[in-house]
């Protein structure tokens, strides 16, 4: 018999029994290990299969170096542009009421549903040397396809939704009241944007930009169609990896792949570091 003072184990209604809890956690870990960690480790193991020196030597080749520089340049141009377009689109959609809003939202999502290869082909059709616009541009010395502008266009098309998709729900949830308050206090629209709107969305924006960046650096399908994969000229990191792999240069292929993976990990690390550093502000913006 237990009396009233004996300890009773308390747990909340949403808490599962220990068995179920460990089973779920284990399942999540197993899934992550098989799908994420193992392939990531395999990339690094393959890259270092012939030792660090061989791996570094393959990275030091002019083509690999050019591919890395090109990919970073593409990301450096397309990500800020997409951030600006994404903010503009999200602002427009959430702060104003107008006809065709649903259509615009669908349009923003289009790059997610269209295969990147198809997107690349569209750009070739629009701006290729045989098209009206492309022919004129090539004639004036500004080729789009098989050149940097085409790669940027393709990358921007594929990564367009990331920023806007990240911002729209946050901006809908926050409503317009704070902006209206700023206006009644005498702030201009521009000042309201910089002092109220932007600080409120900065975490969502950062997250969107990081996702956009990761995808921009990793984009393969659309870029491989429009770039023509000319070594040392229009071959980006992902297309270079594929070409090297097709040529059975597995150490070289996996070395570039490892660099690409490291860049992605760096992005994640940056995000986590920022989150830890600004944890108090993050909490303040969310709990209100």
């Amino acid at each position: 018999m237990s009396d009233a003072s004996s300890p009773v184990p308390f747990h909340s209604a949403t808490e599962e029994a220990p068995v179920a809890r460990w089973l779920l956690i284990g399942l999540a870990f197993a899934g992550l290990s098989i799908l994420v960690f193992a392939p990531l480790i395999a990339v690094f193991v393959e890259a270092l299969a012939d030792g660090v020196a061989a791996s570094l030597k393959s990275l030091a080749s002019p083509d690999a170096g050019h591919a890395i520089r090109l990919t970073l340049t593409i990301a450096a141009i397309s990500v800020p542009l997409n951030a600006v377009f994404g903010i503009a689109a999200a602002w427009f959609i959430t702060k104003f009421d107008f006809r065709g809003k649903a259509f615009l939202i669908t349009l923003i999502d289009l790059p997610f549903s269209v295969s990147p290869v198809v997107a690349g082909l569209c750009i070739v059709l629009m701006f290729g040397a045989n098209s009206l616009v492309g022919g004129w541009l090539v004639g004036h010395g500004y080729p789009i396809v098989f050149a940097m502008p085409g790669i940027i266009l393709a990358t921007m098309f594929v990564t367009f939704p990331f920023v806007a998709r990240e911002l729209i729900p946050v901006m809908i949830e926050q409503g317009r009241a704070e902006e209206e308050a700023a206006l009644t206090l005498g702030a201009s629209g521009w000042r309201t944007f910089w002092t109220v709107t932007l600080p409120n969305i900065r975490w969502a924006l950062l997250y969107g930009v990081l996702l956009c960046n990761a995808r921009a650096m990793g984009e393969f399908g659309a870029v491989s169609v429009v770039s023509g994969k000319i070594r040392g000229h229009t071959a980006t990191m992902p297309t270079t990896i594929e070409m090297l792999y097709q040529e059975y240069l597995s150490v070289a292929a996996f070395s570039v792949a490892a660099v690409l993976a490291l860049l992605a990990l760096l992005t994640l690390l940056l995000k986590t570091a920022l989150e830890i550093r600004h944890a108090d502000q993050l909490a303040a913006t969310h709990r209100h």
Binding site: A177, A181, T184
Partner: peptide
């Protein structure tokens, strides 16, 4: 305009700047 009116406005959910 809203700025020119100089009306002190208190919103229903106060709309304080949370950051």
């Amino acid at each position: 305009t809203v700025q020119e009116r100089r009306a002190g406005f208190v919103f229903q959910s106060y709309a304080l700047f949370r950051h």
